[in-house]
Amino acid sequence: MLLQQNEKKIVILGAPKNFGLNSVISDQLGVLGFEVVDINIEEKPFYYKSLVLRLKNLYRKLILKDYQYKDVLRKRFLDEQYEGKFAHIQQADYALFIRPDLFPKSIIAKVKNITRLTVGYQWDGLNRYPDIFSRIAIFDRFFVFDPVDLALPGTLPLTNFYLDQQITKQEDNNLTGKSTDILFIGTYIKERIPDIYQFFNLFKNKEEVEINAIINTHSQELVEEIQERCPIITTTYDGITYLENIDLVRQSKALADFSNYLHDGLSFRALEAIGFNKKLITTQKSIQKYDFYQPDNILIIDPTTDYNQVITFLNTPMREIDPLIKRKYSFSNWIKYVFDQEEHIPINLPAQS
């Protein structure tokens, strides 16, 4: 997959900055030989660029009763920040927008005008962020990860991925953290928190199982709730970067995953389990429809799951995944499929019953 220097292709990238994901994706593309132009911005507070504009807004508001003009100026101000990121690019080979609802439609359209292939991927349910619907038609190829969303004409199937290029700064034999039996890292989402409490309370006073469960929240009230309801869980205010998460994954035996019931797409944890040869404990029943599912590797839990079932699962040897299936979910194949390059393995989603 590595490109020759004289074949380097330009990719304009727009991706969420949460937990450093845009940087991780940019680095992966760079290792694969692409030249990456990341258009993410650090938004500056709005200011009038001249006294004339300030007076014009005042006139329109007081005399013409136009209370929207300042919003027009704000949008123009924001667009100029984005445009500055790719103003030096006359022609790009690819553009990749992940969570396109986070980016102005006008910017996506301008990027498309200078790009051979413009791709969008919504790694959340379409209905959760309705602003996405007005952007879909802009793209040459538009991907969704929830099988339900394939009912919308013009959408293509896609999952998330695991990192397979220059994963982290640490090599496996240099990891210094404590080994963990079950790892969970996630943000506080109300819909899934009862499942999280119920599962981790199975391990209360069970010292033989090493648990590392971390929830990110900025609410002191929620921190106190977590401490009261399930003391085994720790909290973090600042969050954990994606690369720090990967280091913890590599030091763990099994990953825990809890559906938020707002969509039915695969989380990153499911793909990380494939890529890093980890067991997966999940509430997502539909995972058994995927080609990588093995009951020895993946335990689907519900309110009836007990401690002994989990221990038996952890002690059962893993089954090796077909190398072709494993390669399919790697970032290297993912980007080939997304950009419709040769020798990619198509990524499908299970049919809805």
Rank of each mutant, 00 (worst) to 15 (best):
L2H: 13
L3V: 06
Q4H: 13
Q4I: 02
I10P: 07
I10M: 09
L13W: 01
L13C: 10
S23L: 14
V24E: 06
S26T: 09
Q28K: 11
L32Q: 05
G33Y: 03
G33A: 12
G33I: 04
F34N: 08
E35M: 13
F46Q: 12
Y47W: 07
Y48K: 12
Y48S: 11
S50P: 07
L53D: 07
R54T: 01
L55A: 15
K56V: 05
K56N: 05
L58P: 00
Y59K: 12
K61T: 14
K70L: 09
V72F: 12
L73K: 12
L73Q: 10
F77C: 07
L78Q: 10
D79E: 10
Q81C: 09
K85T: 06
I89Q: 07
I89N: 08
Q90D: 13
Q90M: 03
F97T: 04
L102H: 08
P104A: 13
S106C: 04
K110G: 11
T115M: 09
R116N: 14
T118W: 02
V119P: 00
G120T: 07
Y121K: 13
L126C: 09
N127W: 09
R128A: 15
P130L: 09
D131N: 14
I138A: 07
N160L: 13
D164I: 01
D164N: 14
K169Y: 00
I182F: 01
G186K: 05
Y188L: 08
R192I: 01
P194A: 09
K204D: 13
E208M: 05
E208Y: 00
E210V: 13
H218I: 12
H218Q: 13
S219D: 05
V223T: 13
E224V: 01
P231K: 14
Y237G: 08
T241L: 09
L243I: 13
R250G: 09
Q251K: 15
A254F: 07
S267Q: 03
R269L: 02
G275M: 08
K278P: 03
K279M: 12
K285C: 01
K285R: 15
I287A: 12
Y290Q: 04
Y290D: 05
D291C: 11
Q294E: 08
I298P: 01
T305D: 07
D306E: 11
Q309P: 03
V310H: 10
L314W: 10
P317Q: 08
K326G: 05
F331S: 06
S332Q: 04
N333M: 07
W334M: 06
I335F: 02
F339H: 04
Q341M: 15
E342S: 14
E342P: 02
I345F: 04
P346Q: 11
P346V: 11
Q352R: 09
